[in-house]
Design a protein around this nucleic acid. Structure first.
Lengths: 242, 242
DNA sequence: GTCTATAGAGAGATAGAC
DNA sequence: GTCTATCTCTCTATAGAC
């Protein structure tokens, strides 16, 4: 999927020339604006005019760089999918299950805090049928889950954690961690808070870790908290597409 | 919120006369069709023409019964919110925590199986800001969570379950159980299944129960499975609005 | 390469016949 | 009460000036 996206003007040009620099900056501004607008309104609810305004560019430029609205949406999704798979690398046969799970849950909670729009765009895509990410789900993600489920099964077989259905255990981790980005409105209203601060996220991460580790029959690590504290601020910066 | 919805032609007329019967049937067909279309496409992506076609009625009838698209959407949401709060009634100070949690998780998983469209409409609404359910979240749901968190705190204080942050424990249950409705596409693709059967849901419910009860430091009940087996089929029937 | 002005399609809503 | 035909507005996309 990550390599099967539509070819557009945005990725066919030399990036070392001066023109390439402006292009790269504009593309990045558009992608950042688009991620936000698509997160807030969904694909159908987002308008090219809204995205253009947020990016501070004329509407026609979006079509110049990305062709159609759907092409732009796919480029945004592509950015998101690329980072979606990474943090689970900590799951290896020789790793300590407590350490690996702590690292993974912490990374997922950090993603919910620092890139909430990305999580929402993905959630919205899945919620409405996931037609744009079908291959990603059935190939890339399935392969990864199959592999990591094997690792977890090995941990269970070795008596290093309580018996779990490995795939459902992963679903649980995804559901719980992404919930803090996707359902933030509900969480804030129920807790009576206007915003969720970095401190709130540190506390929520600690509690999620406690519940997940207990569900896995593992002791809680005492070093969990420091890992959350020194990361970048909650902006919505998007990595370059090129 | 449930009582603060827009008044429309749909709820101002006598329901005992012959006309009232036709009206009630049409309203129900429209609501059922609308729940499905709004779930599949979101508010912005859904069209009145799609809903009308699915309901087997001319487009103009939808406007006759519900006024605007937004009024119809609110009526659909109202139906959903009404059932959203009910199953947590099993949480009472004197209840056995294992029994109460088992009943609640089972009911939530059943809701994901039998009313997936309702779950998706609600998820979509929250995902995009929840402007139509603000009061529901900040008043009805917050009150309920405050009350039930008190019950859980009592169970913890009495040493009847492991220490948890009660509100976050509830968030975890919501996240995990609703995930099976909202992210069904992802789950099916990753598991390599075309559909999730009643048997699949029974197995998934058992595993979710195992994880949740373990996270709460509670023993698993042996009577869990039978509770899942004899419920209505996975249609998308919607209760009458009147 | 950039932007204004506009064409063209699609959607919500309604008038008015039945 | 019901439904066809249509009005009007919004949004995507592009033509063409600069």
């Amino acid at each position: 999927m990550a390599n099967a996206m539509a070819r557009t003007a945005a990725d066919t040009t030399d990036t070392t020339s001066p023109q390439g620099r402006i292009r790269r900056e504009n593309v990045e501004r558009i992608l950042k604006a688009a991620e936000r607008i698509f997160a807030e309104a969904g694909f159908a609810g987002a308008t090219m005019a809204d995205i253009a305004e947020r990016a501070g560019l004329p509407k026609a430029n979006l079509h110049y760089y990305f062709g159609t609205k759907e092409d732009l949406y796919r480029a945004v999704l592509d950015n998101i999918l690329r980072m979606w798979l990474a943090p689970i690398d900590s799951f290896t046969p020789d790793a300590d299950p407590s350490v690996a799970l702590t690292a993974y849950v912490t990374a997922k909670m950090e993603a919910s805090r620092t890139r909430p729009h990305a999580s929402k765009v993905f959630a919205n895509e899945i919620l409405h049928g996931g037609t744009q990410v079908e291959r990603f789900l059935a190939e890339d993600l399935k392969s990864l889950v199959d592999a990591k489920a094997g690792v977890i099964d090995g941990w269970v077989a070795a008596g290093r954690m309580a018996p779990v259905d490995a795939r459902q255990f992963l679903f649980m981790i995804w559901a719980v961690t992404q919930h803090y980005a996707d359902f933030d409105v509900q969480i804030r209203k129920v807790l009576g808070r206007r915003t969720l601060t970095r401190q709130d996220f540190a506390a929520m991460t600690a509690e999620v870790l406690r519940l997940v580790l207990r569900a896995a029959g593992l002791p809680e690590l005492q070093i969990a908290e420091p890992q959350v504290s020194e990361l970048e601020p909650p902006t919505d910066s998007v990595p370059s597409i090129s």
